[in-house]
Amino acid sequence: MQRVNMIMAESPGLITICLLGYLLSAECTVFLDHENANKILNRPKRYNSGKLEEFVQGNLERECMEEKCSFEEAREVFENTERTTEFWKQYVDGDQCESNPCLNGGSCKDDINSYECWCPFGFEGKNCELDVTCNIKNGRCEQFCKNSADNKVVCSCTEGYRLAENQKSCEPAVPFPCGRVSVSQTSKLTRAETVFPDVDYVNSTEAETILDNITQSTQSFNDFTRVVGGEDAKPGQFPWQVVLNGKVDAFCGGSIVNEKWIVTAAHCVETGVKITVVAGEHNIEETEHTEQKRNVIRIIPHHNYNAAINKYNHDIALLELDEPLVLNSYVTPICIADKEYTNIFLKFGSGYVSGWGRVFHKGRSALVLQYLRVPLVDRATCLRSTKFTIYNNMFCAGFHEGGRDSCQGDSGGPHVTEVEGTSFLTGIISWGEECAMKGKYGIYTKVSRYVNWIKEKTKLT
């Protein structure tokens, strides 16, 4: 034993070699072989497995989906700052455009905790909710729209109204504003409101030439003092309507412009014939205590009207009353817009006519005020429907199939267009061939041609 100890002390290297040989010859039971080890760690190889990531292109799944990435790591994937920024906006807080917040056709661009709407022409605001041009839906104005110097929408209202708090709607500024039905039992019968379409306001006024200088022999019209197929109006439903009495009662109609003036057809009036105007009328054979009678003290036909040349060209006249009318729910003026808007309103496509005229061709006159909704007829169809001249200051309205029309005794009465609950004068009943005849239409004086003249002559002093 002493000898062994001496050998170990003198030859430590020998001992180490012996131990190493023993270990190498022993069977290893701690580690699995290569094949079995792979069965336990069965993990798919990654895209760049075996390579240094710093030297390969980034992978979106590896960089940002398996674990949260930084902007720089995302930049490695896209290799483009702009594309990385677009991805980053949604990656950080989701897609803010998912709810489609942009209105009126706006395009949404996502941002971090926010979004941006790219608005089409005519709109602005956070969600493109603000109209900035009158060309689109009248700028959301209830009545009139004008573009300011910086191309912003400025709404306005006709006389007797003021802008509401929203700067879009119009509200009454006087007790009985024009064009409004205020009798409670008839307010439910107000005709369907007309909503502004998209309009090209630059070209809204037709490029028409008034044929002022045409000389033409007097034409022989049949029954051209021209509501057939209409309905009984309720008291106060058309408070701007008046009836004219002269040699015979209810020979023509008219509309209240203001307390002192009536507008009617020029062919209705004769110099030297006494005319009485009755406002607030409903049943011409009954006294309903809503009527107001006034005498006409002055007749002003349009300066281009000449019955000797043509009885229905420039067929418009103004009547001055001896005493002002007292405005109330049964006696209310009709609204008159400017030339541009009167023309736009007419193009809405349908209007209402009213009167006490004959209820059928050569038949009896109506006792109760009649009204009828009539569609506008395109000019080409209008011209083809008659052998008589249709001037540019006239328009056609009615039904091709016949059966409904204005008729004798309705002449001078109103053709009105309702705009968001307020009625505007767009025409004056003038003439036609018979009444409600198939293929024939009622012919009306186009008020847009005469609004400046009306307003100039009827100013209240």
Rank of each mutant, 00 (worst) to 15 (best):
I299S: 12
F238K: 04
K89E: 03
G246D: 08
K146S: 05
C117Q: 02
L14V: 07
Q237W: 09
I334P: 00
D200N: 07
D95S: 14
E79Q: 15
N127K: 11
Y450D: 02
K109E: 08
H303A: 13
S114C: 15
K457F: 07
G351F: 01
G58F: 05
L376D: 01
T264R: 01
I112A: 15
T417S: 11
T209P: 06
A26C: 10
L376S: 09
T209S: 12
I7G: 12
P375K: 15
G105Q: 09
I262W: 00
L321V: 07
T194V: 07
L327Q: 03
Q143H: 11
S25K: 05
I390Y: 13
P12G: 13
T194K: 11
L319P: 00
P172Q: 09
R191A: 13
E53S: 08
I275R: 00
N138T: 10
A337P: 03
L244K: 01
D378H: 09
G413W: 15
G421V: 02
V359L: 11
R62T: 14
G236S: 05
W261Q: 01
N166M: 02
K339A: 14
S184K: 10
Q219L: 03
R191L: 10
H282G: 08
I40V: 08
G13L: 12
R140A: 14
K234D: 12
N113L: 07
Y341C: 04
F424S: 00
H302Q: 03
S169K: 08
K438I: 03
S156F: 09
V77A: 10
D378Y: 03
L318S: 00
F144E: 00
T225E: 08
K274V: 07
P12A: 13
N213E: 08
R3L: 13
Q370H: 13
D223K: 04
D93A: 13
Y371H: 13
T342L: 05
C128I: 03
C435L: 02
L244E: 00
E171A: 08
P235H: 08
V278C: 05
Q167H: 07
I15R: 03
S148W: 06
K362Y: 14
L460H: 09
E434L: 15
R62N: 09
I428M: 05
E27A: 05
D110H: 15
G246Q: 04
N313E: 13
D322V: 02
L24R: 01
E61H: 12
P333F: 00
M65W: 06
E98Y: 13
S156H: 06
D110S: 13
E129D: 12
E418I: 09
A266Y: 02
K152Q: 09
Q57I: 12
E323P: 04
E73D: 15
N151A: 06
Y305C: 00
K39S: 09
I17W: 09
F123V: 07
L325D: 00
C128F: 02
K274Q: 07
L325I: 02
T158S: 06
A173W: 05
S169N: 08
P172S: 06
K438T: 04
R379I: 15
N104R: 08
E401S: 12
P12Y: 14
F196H: 09
S156M: 09
C335Q: 01
E291D: 04
N452L: 04
T218C: 10
C407Q: 04
N313M: 06
L369F: 05
L346G: 02
C435E: 04
P301R: 06
F224D: 10
F78D: 12
N147W: 07
L425K: 00
F238L: 05
E124H: 13
V153P: 12
C18R: 01
Q143G: 00
I428V: 08
E35M: 08
A397Y: 02
S107K: 11
N310D: 14
L41G: 15
S411T: 09
D223F: 12
V227K: 09
G125S: 12
R162N: 13
C134K: 02
N283R: 12
F360V: 11
F123Q: 14
G272S: 08
F176C: 03
V181F: 05
G280F: 02
N42Y: 06
K459R: 03
S430L: 15
R379S: 15
E159W: 04
N42C: 09
D200P: 09
F388C: 14
Q216P: 10
I17D: 00
F87V: 12
E165W: 11
R226I: 09
R358G: 14
G125Q: 03
I284C: 08
H415K: 01
R75H: 15
F395A: 02
V153Q: 10
I40C: 14
R404K: 00
E171Q: 11
Y391M: 08
E285A: 09
P324F: 02
C178S: 01
P324W: 02
P172H: 05
G412Q: 09
A308V: 09
